[in-house]
Amino acid sequence: MKKVLLFNLKLMRKNYLVILVTVVSFAMVLGMLFAVKTTDTHPPDIIQGTIGLYTGFPIPISFGGIKVYTSTAKMVEDIKNMILPLGVDVKHKVLYTSPIYASISTEALSYMASAAERLLKGEGLYPYHDDVWWDPYTLSVGKFARAFLLFFLFLMDFLIMYLSLAVKVRLYRTEKLWHLLGISKVTLHLSFVFIAFMSAFVITLPVFFFQPDVYKVYLAIVYITLVSAGISAYFLRYASNMLMAYLAILPPVALLFGAGTYVLLPDKLGLFKYVPWTYTFIDILKYAGAEGMIGGITPALKWGVLVVWGVIAIWGWYKGVIENA
């Protein structure tokens, strides 16, 4: 067993696929971590973006106390009805008087209260953004969402790592060699499970310790994108089943879609806020872009990143799909 493990670890070192999987998984964990941490103010877009990134579907979710408004008017009405009558001690009263919002975090309540005050003063709902439909009624992602993401990341990394090892062995018909070395199929696959488990564990573990800041979100998302597009291309070359193909196809599709939508439907036109299925990636891009960085990133850089993003995704598709068709 020790020899099998050592050899497989060595194989992983030489196997660029596995290296890329490890790197991308790590980047994803970091990215998601930063996203989750920074969602105290904007959870829905980031969380949905995260789920969309992995599943390919921007899911309008409503779990764990997250509520998404697609209508500004409705949201304003709710804020008025819920907060304004309660006066100064809004946080605690809402918490105790409204069972519907019992899971609302104090941060979210505080935000809602301040938003309501701004409304009363006629200052608009949100300090730096008028498109309030997507952000203010956000509730703390909290432990549930973090646990969900952790589990999801763990599972993803575990599966990808296990499958990449198992597929390689099958692809190169090397079960026969292991048999001659006296290693049964069961032992061989147990070693893959062990490696995949340890890899997923090590990659997911740092999530508990990081204290991210908002600027890192940008880097993390770019990193995820670049690497995931590359890995997708590699995956597709060896995709031996639908699951692998599915895992491989998602990131470039999702990212191309997001980037393309952002380019085609610029914020200035205000179009995308009426198209609910576009907001997932747009908001990630937006949040990662100049607005999220409070003007820290120049528009040229933002466009540059988008172009690189698209080129890599197209390259992934070309290598993976067209060249191997």
Partner: peptide, 11 residues
């Protein structure tokens, strides 16, 4: 073996 059984990424 008749069918190659070899790790192609390895030297």
């Amino acid at each position: 073996f008749e069918e190659p059984a070899i790790y192609e990424e390895l030297s």
